[in-house]
C-alpha cells in the first residue's frame, strides 16, 4: 500500500498506473524492452481516495444498522422479568447466550477444565494465533489446515450457542421438546 499523503506530502494519485511498483518485479526478459514501461496494476490494486468512497460506505452501513436496530427497538421490548429474588431459582437459570458454550462445557467436563482451563486456553490461543500460524500465504488453497481448524472452532461455538438456547430446558437439562413452543428464547 502506497503511503503518499502522510505528513501532508503529495496528494495521492488515483489513476491506475503504479508509481511505486517496479516493472522489474513482475516481468523479465524481452518484455522489459518494450515501450511504454508502465505496468498496469491488477484491478485489485487500484486505489481510490478514502473520502468520499470509503466514508460514504461507512456512513451508509452505519445508517442501515441504526435503522434496523431502531425498528427492532420499536417492535420488541427488552426483557424485564420479576424483580431479582435470590431465594427463588427460576427454571431457566442460564448464562447469557454468548457464554452458553462455557455452561455446555461445564455440563460435560470437570469444572476445573470446563470453567477454567478451556476458556484460558481458547483466549490465549486466540491472542497468540497470528504467531502460531507461520504460513505467510493469504490464499485459501494454501491455508487449508488453518481454515479447517478455525472453521471447526466457529462451528463448535455456534453449535454450543444453538444447543444452549434451544435444547436446554429447566436446570440446563437436555430437552428436545424445548424447540417447540419454548418460552425462554429471549436472551
Amino acid at each position: 500500500m502506497a503511503r503518499s499523503g502522510r505528513n501532508g506530502g503529495d496528494p495521492p494519485r488515483v489513476t491506475p498506473p503504479a508509481k511505486g511498483r517496479s516493472p522489474l518485479a513482475s516481468t523479465t526478459g524481452p518484455e522489459l524492452a518494450r515501450a511504454p514501461l508502465v505496468v498496469q496494476m491488477a484491478k485489485e490494486d487500484e486505489v481510490v481516495v478514502t473520502y468520499p468512497y470509503l466514508v460514504w460506505r461507512e456512513y451508509l452501513s452505519a445508517l442501515a444498522m441504526f435503522v434496523f436496530l431502531l425498528v427492532v427497538s420499536f417492535l420488541v421490548a427488552a426483557p424485564l422479568l420479576a424483580r431479582a429474588d435470590l431465594t427463588v431459582t427460576p427454571d431457566f437459570a442460564k448464562a447469557p447466550w454468548y457464554f452458553l458454550g462455557l455452561q455446555e462445557l461445564l455440563q460435560r467436563f470437570p469444572p476445573v477444565m470446563a470453567g477454567v482451563a478451556f476458556p484460558i486456553m481458547v483466549v490465549i490461543g486466540m491472542l497468540a494465533m497470528p504467531y502460531l500460524d507461520r504460513n505467510p500465504s493469504r490464499r485459501p488453497q494454501e491455508r487449508k489446515v488453518a481454515i479447517a481448524l478455525f472453521t471447526l472452532f466457529v462451528c463448535m461455538c455456534l453449535a454450543f450457542v444453538v444447543i444452549g438456547v434451544f435444547f436446554r430446558g429447566p436446570g440446563f437439562v437436555w430437552d428436545w421438546t424445548k424447540i417447540l413452543g419454548y418460552q425462554g428464547l429471549v436472551p
Partner: peptide, 10 residues
C-alpha cells in the same frame, strides 16, 4: 483513515 485505500478493500 488512510488518504487512499485499495478499491478491493472497500
Amino acid at each position: 483513515h488512510p488518504v487512499r485505500v485499495k478499491k478491493s478493500a472497500i
